[in-house]
Design a protein around this nucleic acid. Structure first.
Lengths: 349, 349
DNA sequence: TCTACTTGCTGCATCGATTGTGCAGATGTT
DNA sequence: AACATCTGCACAATCGATGCAGCAAGTAGA
């Protein structure tokens, strides 16, 4: 095993090439023309640098230039199709720009979120993307103090540009589809459609709930409080709640609007325990898309949020109008039951 | 909008507190006792630091201490249940240790992989985890030169400790289950089981293919070359290949072993175009688990890899025996069709 | 009173890259 | 020949935090 020699620096290259450190720095960078370094010198220096396996110490550069080349993104969790799609897009767009993405998950915990933002500020990230912020005001306050450009994604903030899905429209259309697909047999509580999952204090859920209410009200079926079961995003609690609901009603309701894939995972945990027949008279919808969820034993109406579009827009905002406190909407897409959506990354795997 | 004041440094705190920068540094750190700073001084300094919203400049600290507090992980892609579970676990374990995880996706491209490793080395990550390496030798060479502790996950390398799933065992058991579940009606090519997806030059797939061959050979059904369709991990190519196979055979084969969730996504793209009846006489297995994939219209035998266990072991190795060139195996778990697996993070969402 | 410690702090060099300034020597101009 | 200009490079300060070496007061022991 070769014992590693200390990593080589511009001073080593300087010594080996007979040039000065500043010449080496310029030669290895982009602006050697402006600094009038002879092309032959540049070539020599670069050759030696390659031979020595030199690589820039980004900590030193970052310290001097007061920017790190890192771009931060906070997401609620990695283990989720929607957010991991965002990660994939974020990474692609950041690398296109020669930046290094740092993605952190907050578990939707405001304290953790704050700690993460602090940490990213400590590392002098150049931009910060916050997806699903739990406390936008706090984030903005910290970023302001650190003079850090930031943008909110998915959940808007008041102090920076925000890019969000058009949750109202997505939920409006989904609810309409559920309503249309439903087979009603009477006027019992079971005939209603229930909304399950998410947190009614968060923006996205609130929009969706509003749309849900509006559609049903327009259809002459005003929503009762018990029809909204905002039990959070955790699979476990969704399992519990849907089971309790079925218990109360004596069967599955005629329709269920599930507010996220994670909640749907939990709902599935209960549905899977039911005989398939009992699902025949229910129509299920899920806000978010998953190719497997689209092919369950029962039809599922889905909504695909444009994760890539969200990130693209967010990047545009942060690069072009970082101080425009504007809210950009990105349209989600309704996906019919049993439809395969060909993702932008499906040529990779 | 408040214009941001320059971020405060230890020099600002020093001026405000009347102490010297070195005293401030010591007071804000852990070792102020060793440096014999009076407790009252420490309190004063910390109060002022808080008031000023001071936060350590990690670039400066990293430069001085020659370690960054960052830990890197390379994964093939974010948008995948297996890898995003690894990300989730990695993040949790890194934060427990006060480190900051940086997760990058290589898209299984050796060039991209190398670039990423170089970049992470530039940022002086303290450790590097490489999952699904495409060129382990190159990675080890670079890490050696930079004196960087690293560990291979999922795909082993020769030059560092490796932690991998027991792919052979997982695939052996899965193949046996497929064989047992199959209903054969004759001795035509359609009666065979086919293996689809993955890259036969990569370690994990090679192990799984070997197990697949062995089970069938033991059962007196030696595997023909055309039974192994290692068409990569991309959904798109899996769709193409399964369609071509069905074309050749005139129907679905009696069994399909799908080598990853991404490939399965592609396979599903084709299966979904078939009438449900045509699936009745086939048994499907997928190496990797997804809760939705477990509840499709047809039963799917799945294998759940222990992503959390892999990362936990990898961390143990890198912290305890970074120079032990040992290969640790982590057992995967067979999941019966239509089974809900309760993930370690299912209380979050 | 004089040495011998201890306490509590400061000064200074250092990590590696960047950048404004300056200075020889070459070339051109009148 | 005297002066201006350009070329190609080197010097040194700087970014912010760290940690070694050392120094002035205070306390203890003889």
């Amino acid at each position: 095993m070769t014992r590693a020699t200390r990593k080589s620096t511009i001073y080593d290259i300087a010594r080996l090439s007979g040039a000065s450190p500043s010449t080496v720095s310029a030669a290895l960078g982009e602006n050697w023309r402006k600094r009038r370094i002879a092309e032959t010198t540049v070539e020599t220096i670069r050759r030696i640098a390659t031979e020595q396996g030199y690589s820039t110490n980004m900590q030193a550069r970052g310290l001097r230039k007061a920017r790190s080349g890192l771009v931060g993104m906070v997401i609620p969790l990695h283990d989720n199709r929607f957010f991991s799609s965002m990660s994939q897009s974020f990474e692609a767009l950041a690398r296109e720009r020669g930046q290094v993405p740092v993605i952190a998950s907050s578990m939707r915990d405001p304290t953790e979120e704050r700690r993460i933002v602090e940490t990213l500020i400590s590392y002098a990230v150049d931009y910060l993307f916050i997806a699903g912020a739990t406390d936008p005001e706090a984030v903005t306050a910290m970023c302001r103090a650190a003079d850090l450009r930031h943008v909110f994604v998915d959940l808007p903030g008041r102090g920076a540009p925000s890019v969000v899905s058009d949750n109202y429209k997505g939920a409006y259309d989904l609810t309409q589809r559920l309503l249309a697909d439903r087979t009603i047999s009477g006027q019992t509580p079971r005939d209603r459609i229930y909304f399950i999952g998410g947190d009614d204090t968060d923006y996205a859920s609130a929009c969706r709930i509003a749309a849900f209410r509006d559609v049903l009200a327009n259809a002459g079926q005003p929503v009762l409080p018990e029809q909204i079961i905002a039990c959070g995003y955790a699979p476990r609690s969704a399992t519990r709640e849907i089971a309790a609901l079925c218990d109360r009603l004596g069967s599955l309701p005629s329709g269920v609007f599930v507010n996220s894939l994670t909640a749907f995972e939990g709902v599935l945990g209960h549905l899977s325990s039911l005989p398939l027949e009992s699902l025949r008279n229910s129509v299920i919808g899920c806000y978010d898309y998953d190719p497997f969820a689209a092919y369950l034993q029962f039809p599922v109406h889905m909504v695909r949020q444009d994760a890539h579009g969200l990130i693209r827009e967010a990047y545009r905002m942060i690069e072009e109008n970082p101080y425009d406190l504007v809210l950009t909407m990105v349209e989600p897409e309704q996906i019919a039951p049993r439809t395969y959506y060909d993702s932008p990354f499906s040529d990779r795997g």
